[in-house]
């Protein structure tokens, strides 16, 4: 008798806990019926911004800073909360927001993995499944080598790569077919390197810089900010960055672009906000206005400077077009690399 009672208690605890997890989703459904199609839409509950990663990452920082900006500048008077839904390189967070179809109180932060992860067949939702609201900032890729490396610029590196692709190891954080790999291949291809010949190693345990410094890898493909400190310490050199024009700020202003080295290609690590599927015109207009206001605010300007982000504002329609072009060029590259989803 007592034994069954205990098992029962244990089971009960589990059920209550499991129910806690899904409780919020059921209450949201009711909200979705109201609102919509009004000319002037306003949020009637607090807004949730999903960072599809753990706390501390780029998506998380963007989400938290935007929420703080909205509140401090008094742009949105509803409460704003940032929620981390990490997993699957973003896929877990995306599928969470996709299920919120019709409830415009759930937003998320997106960047190129939103195109690449679905293209690699690792997420059933892509950007087309969401409502692009506004792009806010951009960041760029950097290609770094050790201080004592024999290459002085990107062209020397790529020429060497054409002759001896097996001798040059490129290392990056993300898996093949994702950002660090693609940004390198995109520029290398424009310089005439066969994308498939690039020897790319992924190190997802944070050992990328270590492996560049100790000579296990020759080139490090990363974001610009990750390279700054080692450049200042004269341990590494940045051969090229993927931006259109020289970046502004200490140290980074000395990084040459691929473009000025005669390689006519760029890679933008854009970052913006998306809503769930099927948002009405009025809802989109509301967020467009608010994000535009945030973009102009002093708080956001300071935030950009603090994190060395570049301004790259796009409103919903423009963003959508930009994304479709980006997706096409990524698809092309992935096809050439023979990486395909499904």
């Amino acid at each position: 008798m007592k034994k069954t009672w205990l098992l029962f208690l244990a089971l009960f605890t589990m059920i209550v806990l499991a129910a806690c997890g899904s409780a919020d989703s059921s209450s949201d459904e009711e909200e979705s019926a109201s609102g919509s199609s009004d000319e002037n839409w306003k949020p009637d509950q607090s807004i949730e911004i999903v960072a599809p990663s753990s706390a501390g990452g780029g998506w998380d920082t963007t989400a938290r800073m935007a929420a703080e900006g909205f509140e401090e500048e008094g742009i949105i008077d509803q409460g704003l909360g940032v929620v981390n839904k990490e997993g699957g390189g973003g896929a877990i967070g995306w599928s969470y927001v996709a299920e919120k179809s019709g409830n415009p109180h759930h937003l998320f932060v997106g960047s190129p993995p939103l195109l690449l992860v679905p293209l690699n067949g690792q997420s059933e939702y892509g950007y087309e499944d969401f409502t692009p609201l506004a792009n806010m900032i951009s960041d760029y890729g950097a290609f770094a080598v050790r201080e004592d490396a024999s290459w002085d610029n990107l062209n020397e590196l790529f020429d060497d790569m054409k002759d001896n692709p097996d001798d040059i190891t490129v290392i990056g954080e993300s898996s093949p077919g994702s950002m660090d790999h693609i940004q390198f291949v995109k520029i290398a291809k424009a310089a005439g390197v066969d994308p498939k010949s690039v020897k790319y190693v992924s190190a997802q345990d944070g050992s990328t810089m270590t492996n560049l410094l100790n000579g296990n890898a020759d080139v490090y493909s990363s974001g610009v900010t990750e390279t700054i400190e080692q450049v200042r310490a004269d341990k590494i050199r940045v051969l090229g960055v993927t931006s259109e024009e020289r970046m502004e700020g200490d140290v980074v202003e000395d990084f040459p672009t691929a473009k000025e080295q005669g390689i006519d290609e760029t890679f933008v690590n854009w970052r913006g906000f998306f809503g769930p599927p099927d948002m009405s015109e009025a809802e989109i207009a509301y967020y467009e206005e608010k994000f535009a206001e945030l973009n102009e605010s002093e708080h956001w300007q300071e935030t950009r400077e603090k994190f060395a982000w570049n301004e790259m504002y796009m409103e919903s329609e423009e963003y959508k077009e930009f994304l479709s072009e980006e997706k096409e060029s990524m698809q092309e590259l992935l096809n050439e690399l023979n990486i395909q989803g499904e």
Partner: peptide
């Protein structure tokens, strides 16, 4: 490695590094 190289050696120190960056501290050789 975290303080002298800016390299996070584990999941925890990676989160810690993220937190430092938010506070405008860039750990590195300098």
């Amino acid at each position: 490695p975290l303080l002298s190289l800016g390299i996070p050696g584990s999941g925890t120190t990676a989160v810690l590094l993220g937190a430092l960056l938010v506070m405008d501290i860039q750990p590195g050789p300098l």
